[in-house]
Computed example of a mutant assay.
Amino acid sequence: MLRSIILALSLLAFPVTALANQCPALMAEVDAALETADLSDEDRAKVMELRAQGEEQHQAGDHAASEASLGEAKTLLGI
């Protein structure tokens, strides 16, 4: 019985770990695209703001919000 409970808890923790590892990859994508992106000053500032916000959310443990912010930045970058 105890084994089943431990297994169930382990499986529930896996998605959180997967999300946590995805955020740095998304930040790297944004950083790489930002170097060569042809954006207006306003859009570039917005992307940088979203990138910083995504990193703060990741560090705070809010990975869903981090993914959303970084996803919005990627959309502005066209990736």
Results as ranks from 00 to 15, higher is better:
Met1Glu: 15
Leu2Met: 14
Leu2Trp: 15
Leu2Tyr: 15
Leu2Asn: 15
Arg3Asn: 15
Arg3Gly: 15
Ile5Cys: 04
Ile6Glu: 11
Ile6Leu: 09
Ile6Asn: 12
Leu7Cys: 08
Leu9Thr: 09
Leu9Trp: 09
Leu9Ser: 09
Leu9Val: 10
Ser10Met: 09
Ser10Ala: 08
Leu11Met: 09
Leu11Ala: 11
Leu11Pro: 11
Leu12Arg: 07
Leu12Gly: 10
Ala13Tyr: 13
Ala13Lys: 03
Ala13Ile: 03
Phe14Ser: 13
Val16Gly: 06
Val16Leu: 08
Thr17Glu: 06
Thr17Arg: 08
Thr17His: 04
Thr17Gln: 09
Ala18Met: 14
Ala18Val: 13
Leu19Ser: 13
Leu19Trp: 13
Leu19Asp: 12
Leu19Asn: 14
Ala20Met: 04
Ala20Arg: 09
Ala20Asn: 06
Ala20Phe: 00
Ala20Cys: 03
Asn21Cys: 10
Asn21Lys: 11
Gln22Thr: 15
Gln22Phe: 03
Cys23Tyr: 10
Pro24Met: 03
Pro24Arg: 07
Ala25Gln: 12
Ala25Asn: 15
Met27Lys: 14
Met27Asn: 14
Ala28Leu: 12
Ala28Asn: 11
Glu29His: 05
Val30Ser: 03
Val30Ile: 04
Asp31Ser: 09
Ala32Ile: 03
Ala32Gln: 08
Ala33Tyr: 05
Ala33Met: 07
Leu34Asp: 04
Leu34Arg: 05
Glu35Lys: 15
Thr36Asn: 09
Thr36Asp: 00
Thr36Met: 08
Ala37His: 02
Ala37Thr: 06
Asp38Met: 14
Leu39His: 02
Leu39Asp: 00
Ser40Gln: 02
Ser40Ile: 06
Ser40Arg: 03
Asp41Asn: 12
Glu42His: 00
Glu42Val: 03
Glu42Met: 01
Glu42Ile: 07
Arg44Gly: 04
Ala45Met: 07
Ala45Cys: 07
Lys46Val: 07
Lys46Tyr: 02
Val47Ile: 07
Val47Ser: 04
Glu49Tyr: 04
Leu50Ser: 06
Arg51Ser: 02
Gln53Lys: 10
Gln53Ser: 06
Gly54Leu: 01
Gly54His: 08
Glu55Ala: 08
Glu55Met: 10
Glu55Arg: 11
Gln57Met: 12
His58Gly: 01
His58Ala: 07
His58Lys: 07
His58Ser: 01
Gln59Gly: 06
Gly61Glu: 04
Gly61Ala: 02
Gly61Arg: 09
Gly61Asn: 04
Asp62Gln: 10
His63Leu: 07
His63Phe: 08
Ala64Asp: 05
Ala65Met: 03
Ala65Arg: 06
Ser66Leu: 01
Ser66Lys: 05
Ser66Asn: 05
Glu67Phe: 01
Glu67Met: 12
Ala68Ile: 11
Ala68Ser: 12
Ala68Gln: 14
Ala68Cys: 10
Ser69Leu: 01
Leu70Glu: 01
Leu70Ala: 00
Gly71Cys: 00
Glu72Lys: 10
Glu72Thr: 12
Glu72Arg: 06
Glu72Met: 10
Ala73Gly: 02
Ala73Cys: 06
Ala73Ser: 00
Thr75Gly: 11
Leu76Met: 14
Leu76Arg: 12
Leu77His: 00
Leu77Glu: 02
Leu77Gln: 01
Gly78Met: 02
Ile79Thr: 08
Ile79Pro: 02
Ile79Arg: 11
